[in-house]
């Protein structure tokens, strides 16, 4: 129900921060989620901002209110002011490809999407989120007291379910190693069916879905639905972390949700800011080359955040195991879902 408009804009701030002397401009077009979506638009924009802070470049963004805006927004950036245009989200895949074909000299990069075959002037940025979620699943399996974990998603789409896949597989791997029977409610990697709120904006659903999982015995829940997860955190805050802990997604949620920082066992990081900054740097130093950037544990495009307030509660041997698994995933000796 994006009734009229759901997009916000912090452009006053942008306009103020631009310094006239910059030679390089990075432009971003958001998808319909808007720049403050507590998700990939915001994280990608953080990458641009980091680059602005680090190298003094110009950055600007345009928000898309509807899908029909993608093309229009890209068109209005094509005037030649932008050295690199960053688009966000798989929904913009077609529009970006079209603009890239029409403007072969313009550098593009798209977050969360990969072209096959690749396009010479577009860098696709994708993330092996399941690698990080695998670690989270293993950690959660090691920390649960009830032997039940839970997860739910926003909508049944790959960028969401890849988290859930990794989480479930991580827990299974723990069972394999330790002979335990930790189960994960809310996602079945085989049938690709599970628990979904059907939206990315009802925080109240986040609370209700976490409650549902808690009622069935889960004491650690991974919500993969953007801001909806904040509702789950509110429940954990009320029930107490003895009863329920939350695993954050995308960013380190102890930072993005500081008021409820104590409920996050850890967060599954998807470092879009880091890959975006890499792309900008490449465009600046001339090493830009179309293709694919895959964020992995190895290149720290994905990762596991710290344990926050549970730093002392996570047993040292579990931490050691996680380190070993991280290494195993990186060198390929541990196959996720295999």
């Amino acid at each position: 129900m994006t009734f009229l408009s759901k997009i916000g804009l912090a452009a006053a701030l942008v306009a103020g921060s631009v310094t006239a002397a910059s030679a390089f401009t990075a432009c971003q077009v958001t998808d319909t989620g808007g720049i403050d979506d507590a998700g990939f638009n915001q994280t990608a924009w953080k990458g641009v901002q980091d680059a602005m802070a680090a190298t003094g470049i110009d950055g600007r963004f345009l928000e898309s209110q509807a899908e029909s805006d993608y093309e229009a927004n890209l068109n209005s950036l094509l005037g030649g002011d932008c050295d690199v245009i960053i688009t966000v989200g798989f929904l913009m895949g077609d529009a970006t490809a079209k603009a890239a074909a029409a403007n072969p000299e313009q550098k593009f990069s798209i977050v969360d999407f990969a072209y096959d075959p690749t396009i010479p002037n577009v860098v696709g940025q994708v993330y092996a989120t399941d690698q990080a979620a695998f670690l989270a699943g293993y950690l959660a399996a090691g920390m649960t007291k009830t032997g039940v974990l839970g997860t739910f998603g926003g909508i049944n789409i790959p960028p969401v379910t890849v988290f859930m896949d990794g989480f479930v597989h991580g827990a299974s791997y723990y069972n394999e190693k330790h002979g335990t029977e930790v189960s994960v409610l809310g996602w079945n990697p085989e049938s690709k069916e599970g628990l979904f709120t059907g939206n990315f904006d009802s925080l109240d659903d986040g609370r209700a879905f976490a409650q549902n999982l808690y009622d069935e015995g889960a004491d650690i829940v991974l919500p993969v639905a953007g801001p909806v997860g904040l509702g789950s955190a509110a429940l954990a805050d009320e029930l107490g972390t003895e009863a329920l802990k939350i695993v954050g997604v995308d960013a380190d949620q102890t930072q993005t949700d500081p008021q409820k920082a104590h409920v996050y066992l850890t967060s599954v990081l998807k470092r879009m800011d880091s890959t975006v900054q890499q792309v900008i740097n490449a465009a600046m130093d001339g090493s830009f080359e179309g293709g694919l950037v895959v964020g992995t544990l190895e290149n720290e495009g994905v990762g596991l955040a710290g344990f926050g307030s549970f730093e002392d509660e996570v047993p040292a041997e579990l931490k050691a195991e996680l380190d070993a698994i991280r290494a195993g995933v990186i060198d390929g000796s541990i196959k996720i879902g295999g």
Binding site: F3, S202, L203, R207, P227, L230, A234
Partner: peptide, 13 residues
Amino acid sequence: GSVGRFDENMTGG
């Protein structure tokens, strides 16, 4: 009564 913070269109119909 639920989550402590507001989000756009959170009543959802």
